[in-house]
Design a protein around this nucleic acid. Structure first.
Length: 213
DNA sequence: GGGACGATCGAT
DNA sequence: TCGATCGTCCCC
């Protein structure tokens, strides 16, 4: 299980890269689901024109971003989809890391059910990647698959029911790719900051990826 | 009270 | 390329 120390003396950009390869777990009444984080984006506080906290605005929605690191900042986008962020900086510094894609590891059937997808025909070696990548290869999709919603707003991600854990060795820098963040055309000079990170060649990274950086 | 808009997704 | 769908935020 992740500890508060993880965030100490570590910048948001470092936190973002370190989250790659970690497992996000949700113990819910319906069952447990989990996945390895394979894609993230960093949102860098009051100066970042792509961030909800640009200008240092404090609103009911963004309140959690000003809270302690390791807690969940969740918002509803387009009236339909939830997105999960890990607050990444000390109290008062509204920085966070958006979780953009997971590689499903546990509770595949439950994830499929939540996503409204039919299970593929039985296969000797588990489910084909072509099908698994439909489950959580995007920030809205992963929240739906994991059963994450506003009930989890502000909760610690360092203890059940929704938590992060070290499931593998850290992803070496050589396997981390970087590039501009997705869908922030209004962010002006921050639009092309290379603050999106993903595990190179991982098939579960969301679509619309741009060339490696 | 009103209106514009969005850190998305999936069908066309 | 475009529509869904509604909470948030800002302005009146």
């Amino acid at each position: 299980m992740l500890e508060p120390q993880f965030f100490a003396h570590r910048s948001t950009l470092e936190v973002a890269q370190r989250l790659l390869g970690m497992e996000l777990v949700h113990d819910s009444p319906e069952g447990t689901t989990a996945g390895i984080i394979v894609e993230v984006e960093a949102y860098m506080g009051p100066h970042d024109k792509g961030a909800h906290t640009y200008g240092g605005k404090v609103t009911p929605r963004t309140r959690a971003m000003y809270g302690p690191p390791g807690h969940a900042y969740i918002y509803l986008i387009y009236g339909m989809h939830h997105c999960l962020n890990v607050v990444s900086a000390p109290v008062g510094a509204p920085e966070a890391v958006l979780i953009r894609a997971l590689e499903p590891t546990r509770g595949i059937e439950l994830m499929a059910r939540r996503r409204g997808l039919d299970l593929p025909p039985p296969d000797g070696e588990g489910y084909p990647v072509r099908w698994l990548k439909k489950l959580a290869s995007g920030p809205g999709k992963l929240c739906q698959a994991m059963g994450i919603n506003m009930e989890h707003y502000g909760l610690s991600l360092m203890e059940p029911p929704l938590y992060l854990r070290h499931a593998r060795d850290p992803i070496p820098t050589s396997r981390v790719a970087t590039g501009p963040r997705i869908n922030i055309p209004y962010a002006e000079e921050f639009r092309d900051k290379p603050w999106r990170f993903w595990i190179r060649d991982n098939p579960h990274v969301s679509q619309s990826k741009r060339p490696t950086g």
